[in-house]
Design a protein around this nucleic acid. Structure first.
Length: 319
DNA sequence: AACTACTCCTGGAGGC
DNA sequence: TGCCTCCAGGAGTAGT
C-alpha cells in the first residue's frame, strides 16, 4: 500500500529527524528482511551516522557515514516508526499495526537504536526506528554508496511523476512506447512512471476521466495531457491533504479520499453512478462507468481482445 | 510486447 | 466460537 506519497511523507519526516544520529545497535529479528551486498553484514551499519534521507520511486535511501547506504522498500505492508521513548516522532507506511500501538509488535522485524544528535537531558529515553511489516515483503538493503545508482538503474525505473523536469511531451513519448498496454497496467509499470501503485493509479484515472481498460494507443493528445495532469494532481493532493485512507482494499468509511478506489457500489462523488470493480492484471480496479467511459475505438478492440471478466463485472456479490 | 498465473505472507472478512 | 476460504497488496519470475 505505501506508494509515492506515503514514502515521500515518511522521507520528509525522517530527513527532519535522523541526520546526525548515530546507529548504536541493530536488533534484527527476522533475518530475511535484511539484505546486504557481498562482504557486508548487518553489524557494518552499527556506529555509522545518518547523513541524509532521500527517495527514488517507492525506495527510501538512508545515506550513512562510511560510504554506506540503506535502501528500504516497504512493499505492501511495511511501516517505519521513529520513537524517542514512548513519543512518536515520525510514522508512516502501512497503517497496521496502528502507528500508536505498542512497539515492538510481533511483526516488528528490525529495530535501529540511535544516539541523539544533540545532547539531551540524562537519562535520555532511547531513540529507536522500528521496521514493522505484517506480510514480510518489505526489506532493508545495506550497500556501498557507489552501488546505489546501479542498484536503482537495474530496475529500469521510469521518471518521477512530480519531477518538474518531466514534461507532458516527455510523458507522451514514454507511454507511446506501449500503445497496446491498458492504462491501468501502464500506470502500475514502474518502468513507465515510477511510484504509482494500485490506489493512486485508480485515482489518477478517475480524475482524468479515463477508463482503466483503455489502450494507451487510443488516447488523443488532450487525453494524454489530462492523464499527465491527473497523476500529478492526485499525488500532490495526497502530499498536501493526507494520503488515501484504504485498509484491506477498502476505502475507509467517512473519508473523502480516495474517491474511487475501494468504493465498489458507492456513488461516484461526481455523478452518483455506482463505482464498479473489475480485475485487471490480477489487481482490483475501481472506476465510474459514466465519468470514465470507453472511447469508441478502444471499446471495439477490447470486446475482441479482453477476457470476459474485464467487461462484465458490474456488481460483485459483496457490498 | 503483453498478458496470466504464481510466489512470497498474514490479518481480516465472510460463510457455515 | 471455531474453522475454513478468499482477498488484499508490490514486484519478480515463468510460461503462453
Amino acid at each position: 500500500m505505501p506508494e509515492l506519497p506515503e514514502v515521500e511523507l515518511l522521507r520528509r519526516g525522517l530527513a527532519d529527524q535522523l541526520p546526525g544520529c548515530r546507529i548504536t545497535a541493530i536488533d534484527l529479528r527476522l533475518p530475511k528482511v535484511f539484505r546486504a551486498d557481498p562482504r557486508l553484514a548487518v553489524f557494518d551499519a552499527c556506529s555509522k551516522t545518518v547523513l541524509a534521507v532521500s527517495r527514488r520511486a517507492k525506495h527510501l535511501i538512508v545515506d550513512l557515514s562510511g560510504e554506506l547506504s540503506l535502501v528500504i522498500h516497504l512493499r505492501l505492508s511495511g511501516q517505519l516508526v521513529l520513537r524517542r521513548g514512548d513519543e512518536t516522532l515520525v510514522a508512516g507506511g502501512h497503517p497496521v499495526p496502528r502507528f500508536d500501538a505498542p512497539l515492538p509488535h510481533k511483526s516488528t522485524h528490525l529495530i535501529f537504536e540511535l544516539a541523539n544528535r544533540e545532547p539531551v537531558p540524562q537519562p535520555a529515553p532511547p531513540l529507536r526506528l522500528f521496521f514493522t511489516d505484517i506480510r514480510q515483503f518489505g526489506f532493508c538493503h545495506l550497500m556501498r554508496r557507489v552501488s546505489v545508482d546501479g542498484y536503482l538503474e537495474a530496475m529500469s525505473l521510469g521518471p518521477e511523476p512530480l519531477d518538474p523536469a518531466l514534461t507532458v511531451d516527455a510523458f507522451r513519448e514514454i507511454i507511446g512506447r506501449r500503445p497496446r498496454a491498458r492504462l491501468k497496467a501502464l500506470l502500475l509499470d514502474q518502468s513507465a512512471v515510477a511510484g504509482l501503485g494500485n490506489i493512486y493509479a485508480d485515482e489518477s484515472l478517475f480524475l482524468a476521466r479515463l477508463q482503466p481498460t483503455r489502450l494507451v494507443g487510443t488516447l488523443d493528445e488532450g487525453e494524454v495531457a489530462r492523464l499527465f495532469d491527473a497523476i500529478r494532481a492526485t499525488l500532490e493532493y495526497a502530499l498536501e491533504h493526507g494520503v488515501a485512507q484504504v485498509l484491506n482494499g477498502r476505502a475507509l468509511p467517512g473519508e473523502a479520499f480516495p474517491r474511487a478506489h475501494g468504493r465498489q457500489g458507492e456513488p461516484c462523488p461526481t455523478c452518483g453512478t455506482p463505482i464498479v470493480r473489475v480485475r485487471l492484471g490480477g489487481r482490483s480496479t475501481y472506476y465510474c462507468p459514466r465519468c470514465q467511459p470507453e472511447s469508441d475505438g478502444a471499446s471495439e478492440q477490447l470486446q475482441e481482445s479482453a477476457p470476459a471478466a474485464v467487461r462484465s463485472n458490474g456488481g460483485d456479490a459483496e457490498t
